[in-house]
Write a protein that binds this DNA or RNA. Structure first.
Lengths: 194, 194
DNA sequence: CTATCATTTCAATAAGGACTGAAAAGGATG
DNA sequence: CATCCTTTTCAGTCCTTATTGAAATGATAG
């Protein structure tokens, strides 16, 4: 084991139990668990946590050894994280391997994630709700059907949800649009207001 | 099939394809998909969507038939939704069955969900981060170890994450504390500011 | 061009969650 | 307290997703 590996706490023997490594592992494990409950797969969350806390570029083998995962898994997860945009590839001169590095600014990371999840998961729902409302319009159903109490009740519920998502979307938008290092404008406003 | 069932669009034959039912089903399906990507199981999300759009109390059998799920599944999912507090049990006089009804106010629902997820998923992470930071304190490691660049780098990353989560927590808190029907104070502040 | 090292891909498999159905428990009614 | 109706529970099964490992592909250096 060379000096670099020692400082990373990477190695096949479990003997190296530095406090640094222990602290990092604790964080990584917890972050992985949280990811799972928010619909992000555990391994991806762990890899991200690892790159984030180490705060230096690691290569695929580092990640594999440190988290005990296969090469295939590491490769696919690293690519997914790059696709999300929260880690970046890096080349070291004189080294064929690729290295990966996490963004350092938490606000930027979360703003990227928020943007992506809004696009992938909230926008389609909002679209669907609008469509459902249209299906229950007077112009689609005729006057008498559109006034049935059950139809009206459903329409009202859809309206309530649409309003909510519209507002939530706006907040996301603000968060997304402004986050370039440090606290967002949204957040500053909030913190000042309370 | 009686009148009540007809109006709910519930029935064993697939023949009844009312626009109301179609709109509801579209919403339910989409809501279920979204839930899945946010770590809420699809069936639970669908049941909730059903109770929400119908805007009237339904019994276990209604839910089973409408969503094609088993009694066991319906029972467990309904209980979980009650535990979350976003649907409520109801008794109808002269009827042994229990009925379930969704909260009508979306803001209240999400405030309940936010409170629960904060408690279950964010608070523990924050706790872990604090603990990890303590592991890397000068008082735990001694001066020289605590000043190693790798230790300092990790400590900084943990601090960055802690700050982020602390602020996020405050925002959640505001959202949670104020939401009793209609827009929260947080949301009003936000909307005025932009 | 070939050898060498790195990365990606993907079929096979393992692991984890969700769902069912039937049996048990609960609770109202006469 | 016996009956009838409803709800809950949970072992077994099914289904989805995550992971592996080895073969294919790509990239660099000599």
């Amino acid at each position: 084991m060379n000096a670099q590996q020692a400082s990373l706490g990477i190695g096949t023997t479990g003997a190296t139990a530095s406090p640094l490594r222990e602290a990092q592992d604790t964080f990584i494990r917890r972050w992985g668990e949280m990811g799972a409950t928010w619909g992000i797969n555990r391994t991806m969350a762990e890899i991200h946590a690892l790159l984030y806390v180490c705060a230096e570029p690691l290569c695929t083998d580092d990640v594999m050894e440190r988290l005990n995962i296969s090469r295939g898994n590491a490769s696919m997860s690293l690519r997914a994280l790059c696709d999300w945009g929260i880690i970046r590839r890096q080349h070291k001169r004189g080294d064929r391997k690729e290295y990966f590095q996490s963004l350092g600014d938490v606000w930027e990371m979360f703003s990227i994630i928020a943007a992506e999840r809004k696009r992938r998961e909230m926008d389609p729902v909002l679209e669907t709700i609008k469509q459902c409302r249209r299906m229950l319009d007077e112009s689609s159903l005729g006057k008498s059907a559109a006034r049935r109490p059950d139809v009206q009740a459903t329409r009202q519920r859809l309206e309530g949800m649409e309003e909510f998502m519209e507002v939530t979307n706006k907040i996301f938008q603000q968060f997304i649009g402004n986050a370039r290092s440090g606290l967002t404008r949204v957040v500053k406003v909030l913190l000042k207001a309370f």
